[in-house]
Amino acid sequence: MEDEKKLAAFEAKIAAGNKIEPKDWMPEAYRKQLIRMMSQHAHSEIVGMLPEGNWITRAPNLRRKAILLAKVQDEAGHGLYLYSATETLGIDRTELLEQLHTGKAKYSSIFNYPTLTWADIGAIGWLVDGAAIMNQTALARGSYGPYSRAMVRICKEESFHNRQGYEIMMHLAQGTPEQKAMAQDALNRWWWPSIMMLGPSDDQSPNSEQLMRWKVKMESNDAIRQRFIDRTVPQADFIGLSIPDKDLKFDEASGHYEHGPINWEEFFEVIKGNGPCNAKRLKARSDADKKGRWVRDAAMAYAEKKKLKAA
């Protein structure tokens, strides 16, 4: 009875466009779903540093290297904001990381693909960050205060990521035939995973009416995917690269691009852990955690010793 009253007040608050804050009453299902989504998002930022970090030492010049370093540092920052925001729901970072390392928590499917050439760094910024921005601008309107504020901040920073990626692709596309071929090859390999990363199509992922009403989920996966495709195809045309989808065509009537069938089998295999780099990514994360343990312990011991001395 009491809970029904609280639930009604909670829903009225959201319907009125107000944010839910950490100490406010919230239904268990809301808390659980947010922990799942937000930690998955945090893990994606951190795991996402790996494919790009792979090219920092091999960036073609100092300008590109400085930019890539700054971008990867941003991703670390995004992971931190998101872990912080998730902790406000009453779970601590140690437990969140444990869920990642044991495979209980997921991260974005996209980061299980390898970065084979320099052009892949361009493709990631342009396509992967581009797709992420579509998703994140929707989430910035969500009802949970700390998540929504983290999204606003992250979206501001992502736009540099997106543009630097497009610039890399543009330079390669205007370069030698080999460079252009390298850019096209990266687009060929990253296009489908990028549109898949926005999640299963709506008929396979019924967005519960409840999650929409609670403003945990703001828009359907297919709606976000459509917007991403509509905005990205002309960008590819502009630099003379072609989208690897023979069925892609512009529909005058609707004003949208229609795309060919998506290989969802591949998506679900990658999610299940059978993508090209799943094992490698998880091992890198869990090794970093284990190898960094003594540093965390030593820093804490030193801080405690200093405190004792001061006392």
Partner: peptide, 21 residues
């Protein structure tokens, strides 16, 4: 926002890196 740190000095440096890039 917030940061994790062993002491105030580290908290300050982490805050600078995380919130004022």
């Amino acid at each position: 926002g917030n940061v994790h740190a062993a002491d105030a000095e580290m908290a300050m440096q982490n805050a600078r890196d995380v919130y004022t890039r």
